[in-house]
Design a binder for these strands. Structure first.
Lengths: 212, 212
DNA sequence: GCGTAAGTTACCTACCAGTAACCTACGGTC
DNA sequence: GACCGTAGGTTACTGGTAGGTAACTTACGC
């Protein structure tokens, strides 16, 4: 790592910053926040550590930028998907949007699945996907109100749906011979939609408790 | 931390070991694996650091024991729940078993939700819940085979169900005025059951693609 | 009163976030 | 075409923290 003028020329500040965000996302995805060393990011970018501090102020600064971009990206996609079509189309489009995100930005998805650094002080929210589920819950609440459903139950279904899609998404990325996104999305959307559609007004246990 | 003979007497090796597992689970749940210091665990147990090393060989040793116990505990509960009753009863009982676990062992659940230390080398499996989902997937595959369903689709539904229950479970624990476990379990089980029951043989997208 | 189980003090080592001070190549200017 | 300012970059260091260990000490049972 002596002479590096030939293999990696100097970049402009903007270009270097963009590159560091890319590299940072990859390393955070691979190692998790805590286990990531700033020097590792710098090394993979072909620069030295203080460059990272110059651009982002520190480890948390870079992490915040990476996370913010991912969350905004996927939330925007889902807001778009949920805003047109019939109710069922909205569900299916949202699920497909999420799976497309998982497929196209696997590293970003991995970052969102991992522990966040803030989780030590306020021990809530161990991973970003829960924050995302909360955001989706707000969207659902809005939609439930407009559609005349009980808005209080919206968070349950939002969390259930995000949980479903997250877990299936992870499984999907790690499967050797994965079915196409549309197929998986159809399955999940059908499951969720049919579940919602045939939901009784007041679900009650079907298990017969033994008489005391 | 000088004289501690009066407030915390010497324990037998077995008792100390059991206590350290309890304390370790709590600290890992609160801080996550990486951010947990062995000294913190030792201090909360009222002993010094080498005691932890004597019993478990190191941080990872204690973590492995904590995790193994939790996974075996919840898997056992679910295997029990899924082994009797009608198909729908099995679904509902399993969901209720999981939520009961979440309620009764919140620290164990929190540990399973967090990042695992093994995730840096084999970058798969960032959290233990995914391993649990895989285990449930095996159980489902068995059940699907016995019931005559397509066993290949079992993992999808297993991951979907575990994801649903995990996310709703976390939301449930953090809600100020949570509905009782039976109510939430009924909602989730109804959602899953009705979804499965009315699932078309070959789900297809309902979204009309614009003609090219 | 002695042997052993249970526990402690004090240390080493490695790593890592963050910083101060210095260097270099390029583009404009005369 | 030699000068020089500055953007982009480096080397070398500090302070703190945490995993792990060697050597020593205390209390209990026989």
């Amino acid at each position: 790592m002596r002479k590096r003028a030939e293999n990696s020329p100097r970049l402009t500040a903007a270009a270097r910053r963009a590159q560091l965000i890319e590299v940072g996302r990859a390393v955070f995805a691979e190692m998790g926040y805590e286990a990531t060393a700033v020097e590792e990011i710098a090394a993979r970018a072909g620069v030295s550590k203080p460059i990272v501090y110059e651009h982002f102020g520190g480890k948390e600064g870079l992490y915040a930028v990476v996370v913010d971009r991912e969350v905004e990206y996927i939330v925007t996609r889902i807001v778009e998907s949920v805003s047109t079509g019939s109710a069922r189309e909205r569900v299916e489009q949202s699920v497909l949007a999420f799976l497309t995100y998982v497929k196209e930005r696997p590293e970003g998805f991995a970052v969102l699945l991992r522990d966040s650094p803030l989780s030590k002080q306020s021990h809530q929210m161990p991973a970003l996907m829960y924050e995302l589920a909360d955001r989706i819950g707000e969207i659902f609440t809005e939609q439930f109100k407009m559609a005349g459903f009980d808005a209080k139950t919206a968070p349950i279904y939002a969390h259930a749906l995000v949980g479903m899609v997250s877990f299936v998404g992870r499984w999907w990325t790690e499967t050797q011979k994965p079915p196409p996104a549309e197929t998986v999305a159809s399955h999940i959307a059908a499951l969720a939609w049919m579940g919602l559609r045939h939901l009784p007004k007041h679900p009650a246990p079907v298990v017969r408790k033994p008489t005391p």
